[in-house]
Simulated assay, not measured.
Amino acid sequence: MTARRAAAFRKTREAHVTEVAEDYVELIADLAAEFGEARLTDIAVNMAVTQATASKIVARLKREGLVDNRPYRSIFLTDAGRAMADEARRRHQIVFEFLRALGIDEATAEADSEGMEHHVSDQTLDALVALTGRLAGQG
């Protein structure tokens, strides 16, 4: 039991490490799609953080090879950042659709899926997809 518990806690800590990066690259992708660019001020407003906090996180994303930017210019995703954003969006959509299939209202499903997407395994996501399909078939 102890080894399983330790593994579960380790998985949760690892999810927390990537959670912020995934949220930011997903937002940067959304801003770029909507406005053609992602500006630091828009990132800070949408993430409800100060510009200083957003700047620190963007600097971390740049070190990790997920974004590229130049001083006083917009922020763009690298190929790795786009791949991370696409995967985060896919995971989010699976959880959101599952919650909606359960009858959860749209606003609650959106809010809940925002955190859950980072903490479920691929095996659980596959099960959610299958169960969502069955629930939708009962409609």
Rank of each mutant, 00 (worst) to 15 (best):
M1I: 09
T2E: 13
T2Y: 10
T2L: 08
A3V: 07
R5N: 12
R5A: 14
R5E: 15
A6C: 02
A8W: 02
K11M: 06
T12I: 15
R13N: 04
R13L: 15
R13H: 09
E14G: 01
A15C: 13
H16I: 03
H16K: 09
T18C: 01
V20C: 03
D23K: 10
Y24A: 02
V25E: 02
E26S: 10
E26D: 06
L27H: 03
D30R: 12
D30C: 01
L31A: 01
E34A: 14
E34N: 08
F35K: 11
G36L: 02
G36V: 01
L40T: 07
D42M: 11
I43C: 07
A44L: 07
V45M: 08
N46C: 05
M47F: 05
M47P: 03
M47E: 11
T50C: 07
A52Y: 07
A52K: 07
A54Q: 11
S55C: 05
K56M: 10
K56Y: 10
V58A: 09
A59S: 12
R60S: 08
L61C: 04
L61V: 04
K62M: 08
R63T: 10
R63K: 13
E64W: 12
V67H: 02
N69Y: 15
N69D: 07
N69C: 05
R70A: 04
R73G: 01
I75Q: 00
I75S: 00
F76Y: 10
D79L: 13
A80V: 05
A80W: 02
R82T: 10
R82I: 05
R82C: 07
A83N: 14
A85W: 05
D86G: 12
A88L: 11
R89T: 15
R90D: 15
H92D: 13
I94H: 02
I94R: 03
V95K: 04
V95S: 06
F96Y: 15
E97C: 03
F98N: 09
R100K: 14
R100A: 06
L102W: 00
G103P: 05
E106L: 02
E106T: 07
E106V: 06
E110L: 04
E110R: 08
A111E: 10
D112P: 00
E114F: 07
G115N: 12
M116C: 04
H118A: 09
H119P: 00
S121Y: 05
D122W: 01
D122H: 06
Q123Y: 08
T124Y: 02
L125K: 10
D126G: 12
A127D: 06
L128G: 04
V129E: 14
A130L: 08
G133N: 11
R134Y: 07
A136F: 01
Q138R: 14
G139W: 10
G139K: 14
